[in-house]
Design a binder for these strands. Sequence first.
DNA 1: GCGTCCAGGTCTACC
DNA 2: GGTAGACCTGGACGC
Length: 293
Amino acid sequence: MPKRLSFAAPVDFSFRYTIFSHGWSSLAPFERDAENLRLNYVFGSDIAGNSAAVQISENAGTINVEIDDENADEAKIIAAVRHILRLDDDLSAFYRLVKKEKSLAWIAREKAGRLLRSPTVYEDLVKTICTTNCSWSLTEKMVTNLVEKLGEPAASGKRAFPTAERMASVSAEFYRTEIRAGYRSPYFAELAEAVAAGKIQPENWLDAAVSTAELKKEMKKIKGVGDYAAENLLKLVGSYEGLALDSWVRAQFYKKHNGENVCEDREIREFYNRFGAWRGLVLWCDMTEKWFD
DNA sequence: GCGTCCAGGTCTACC
DNA sequence: GGTAGACCTGGACGC
């Protein structure tokens, strides 16, 4: 029997701007239903007690979650949904900042800025590595392969994102031939093993006691994580000082602020420096404004 | 059909 | 610390 849960969203929350905040909602086990404005996800038993597929929607400030498995742990699922949608993030200082500039005031007006994330930092870490040095379609393919070939099935047959333990149980060769991860294959095997053994603890990054610079340094020790990947992950754990510049962001900046002319990254950084600790989030919202037209 | 380029970069060797 | 070259994959493009 499916089970339904409901709880209130914060007043400065937009479901639409959150689920479409970046590409994550098109990466398995997320599924987005743009027409009906719904977000689907599959939790593994590590998150929800039992593996469970959920459908998340919003109506007049209430978040609704429909679960396909009545044995799933309600409290854990609510906590995970709050985490995914960033419901407990305090963006009030960010909104005060963007309201000061006419061209950015829409961000506060539309309640944008909550970047969708996975229930675990480990999942976001693996997915971020999948975004590097390839087309978005290849990123989607690699992530789909990980879920389809290694993920735990829910009652509906849909699969969850694999745990580090599950990912550590297969070889680098598996990542090359089955996941099509190319040169990233040994990185995934090494990372999964280290996380499964507790040598790397990505979940601790959520409330790390160290500075952002120190945290970034720690992230970059992982093979496959460079400046872009670390700064993207920092955004997903709540630090927005880094810009996470990649080829797509650069191209958008040239188009929007530099007359289609290529410029150095230094100039992009100078442009957003006035936003201090929020500069990475301001840049991302600024670059994606047209997505919501 | 084939070759080349490049995409939501990073690593390593070398200076 | 800065830089050149290599690295998987697969879609787009030109021929």
